[in-house]
């Protein structure tokens, strides 16, 4: 006995068999379709990032690179993780800054660690340079996008190449890559890069930028991003890669200093007029 009154008085399945939804091309086949959803739909891969990291900002100076990433992991608009480190050192010549999906970032971390272990099998000095790491990541990203199953990230690879020269190059989920004296991912590309380019428009300008000025420049970018990018944060890590000393140094847990929100009062034009 079917106790649902909606079904009372209908031809029962055990007497007439199940209803054939194909009759008259009935459109209400969703429940049927869901049952076989695995056959009905093409394989679905990542279509959007989940927990995300915001911009990576990096700039070359006359003796290396400065790079920064904030410590926030957002779940949509929720502050989900508050102590993230999104820059990873790979060997003694490379730092990779990663924005986008955090689980994909952790997967990349694993791949790069395996790469490093393989590089160390011969127990000779490390041969893995920043240019190699970049080309490896480009391959990984491009192959995954070609399988329509992307790793949802944009990376900045910084360090030294095989000739010991300073290296800075971008690569993202599509396998698109480029180098430039000033690089930023995400919102940083809109709000950070113009600030960086005021100082370093080309390689000639790089020779004129001192380390301290580069650090200040990147820190200013992080502050502007905190002002304007809702998914950024005022706590961040900074990395300085120096060619003359061959050193990679991290300054972890920095905060945006000298914030001033006075400008906010003068902003108008987004909605109702202010009093």
């Amino acid at each position: 006995m079917n106790h649902n009154p909606v079904n009372w008085g209908r031809p029962s399945d055990d007497q007439y068999g199940p209803y054939n939804y194909q009759i008259a091309n009935a459109s209400n086949v969703a429940s049927q379709a869901t049952k076989n959803s695995q056959n009905e739909f093409p394989t679905m891969h990542t279509q959007q990032p989940m927990i995300t990291g915001a911009s990576v900002v990096a700039v070359k100076f006359n003796d290396g690179v400065v790079m920064a990433t904030d410590k926030l992991g957002s779940y949509g608009s929720l502050l989900r993780l508050d102590d993230l480190e999104r820059m990873i050192q790979v060997g003694d010549s490379t730092v990779v800054g990663v924005s986008g999906d955090i689980s994909d970032f952790q997967y990349l971390q694993r791949l790069l660690d395996e790469l490093l272990i393989e590089d160390n099998y011969d127990m000779e000095q490390s041969n893995l340079k920043a240019s190699h790491v970049h080309e490896y990541l480009r391959g990984v990203f491009y192959n995954r996008r070609s399988k329509m199953n992307p790793l949802w990230n944009a990376c900045v690879v910084a360090g030294f190449d095989a000739d010991g020269e300073v290296f800075l190059k971008y690569v993202n989920l599509l396998g698109v890559s480029y180098s430039s004296p000033a690089i930023a991912t995400g919102f940083g590309a809109y709000m950070g890069v113009p600030l960086l380019r005021q100082k370093v428009e080309n390689e000639e300008d790089v020779k004129k930028l001192e380390k301290e000025d580069a650090i200040k420049l990147v820190r200013d970018c992080m502050k502007v991003l905190f002002y304007r990018d809702a998914r950024s944060w005022d706590k961040y890590d900074l990395c300085v890669i120096t060619k003359s000393t061959k050193k990679i140094e991290f300054q972890k847990g920095l905060e945006c200093e000298g914030q001033s929100w006075k400008f906010a009062r003068d902003i108008s034009g987004y909605g109702l007029p202010q009093q």
Binding site: A30, S31, A33, H45, T46, R145, M148, P150, L174
Partner: peptide
């Protein structure tokens, strides 16, 4: 059941114009 429609599909776009 009519209200149940197929899921909205946001397809990943593997191309970009550079």
């Amino acid at each position: 059941t009519d209200a149940q429609t197929e899921p909205i599909e946001h397809r990943f776009n593997p191309y970009q114009d550079n």
